Simulated scan of single mutants.
Amino acid sequence: MSSEHPSSPAPQGDYVAAVLHAGTIYTAGMTPRIDGRLTVTGLVGDTVSLEEAYAATGLAASNALAAARAVLPDESTGLRCLQMTVYVAAAVGFTQLSAVADGASAAIVAALGPGTLPARSAIGVATLPSGAPVEVQLVAAPL
């Protein structure tokens, strides 16, 4: 997997990784997987540290970018992220959701350049698929 343009992650269920419709790209929720395997599992603020969650969220965002790029039209010159939702499987009392989501924002800027941050929500949840600590979903548009 290239760090600049990784291939689109294979779905882990009965869905597609991304859909392009009427000029907008919607990605499925992406977890921190490499070659289909989660790199970390657990609850943030319990078995997963803030630093581990930040890195995991960056990987999940990179996977979402790869999925979005996979459905770009041939004539497209790039990608603009419009909205990002970051889900954090958080231990009771863990409130640093925004700090975890900053890992996804950093990955977006690293991949697309300065001034490319989307609108963002960071949401704490009890569990995520396969025990993932984070999941990232993007809405984007081709340039």
Rank of each mutant, 00 (worst) to 15 (best):
Ser105Pro: 02
Ala107Val: 11
Ala106Thr: 10
Thr57Ile: 04
Gly124Glu: 08
Ala67Pro: 11
Gly113Gln: 11
Ala99Gln: 11
Ala70Trp: 01
Gly115Ile: 02
Pro118Ile: 03
Gly78Asn: 10
Gln83Trp: 09
Glu75Val: 14
Ser105Glu: 10
Asn63Leu: 07
Val109Tyr: 04
Ser105Trp: 05
Gln83Pro: 08
Asp102Ile: 14
Gly113Tyr: 14
Gly115Trp: 08
Arg120Ser: 13
Ala56His: 05
Thr95Met: 11
Leu97Gly: 03
Thr77Ile: 05
Gln96His: 15
Gly113Met: 02
Leu97Ser: 00
Thr95Gly: 07
Ala91Phe: 03
Leu82Arg: 13
Thr85Tyr: 07
Asn63Trp: 12
Tyr87Gln: 15
Ala110Pro: 00
Ala107Pro: 05
Val100Thr: 08
Asn63Cys: 08
Asp102Ser: 06
Asp102Arg: 13
Gly113Ile: 04
Ala64Gln: 02
Val88Trp: 13
Ala99Phe: 07
Asp102Ala: 14
Phe94Met: 11
Val88Glu: 10
Ser105Gly: 15
Ala90Tyr: 07
Ala101Cys: 10
Ala104Lys: 00
Ala111Trp: 01
Ala68Tyr: 04
Val109Ser: 01
Ala99Thr: 12
Ala111Ile: 04
Gly78Arg: 11
Val100Ile: 04
Gln96Arg: 15
Ala89Glu: 06
Ile123Gln: 11
Leu112Arg: 09
Ala61Phe: 03
Leu97Arg: 01
Leu65Cys: 05
Ala107Arg: 08
Ala89Asn: 13
Thr116Ala: 02
Ser121Asn: 11
Arg69Ser: 13
Gly78Pro: 07
Thr77Asp: 11
Ala104Asp: 02
Ile108Glu: 06
Arg120Leu: 12
Ala61Glu: 02
Val100Ser: 01
Ala68Glu: 09
Val92Lys: 09
Thr95Ser: 15
Leu82Val: 15
Glu75Arg: 14
Ser62Ala: 14
Ala106Ser: 13
Pro73Val: 01
Ala122Gly: 07
Ala90Val: 04
Gly113Phe: 04
Tyr87Asp: 12
Met84Gly: 07
Gly124Cys: 04
Ser76Thr: 01
Gly124Arg: 03
Ala119Arg: 08
Leu72His: 05
Ala56Lys: 05
Val88Lys: 03
Ala66Glu: 07
Ala122Ser: 15
Ala101Ser: 10
Ala122Trp: 07
Leu112Phe: 12
Val92Gln: 15
Leu117Asn: 02
Leu97Thr: 01
Glu75Phe: 07
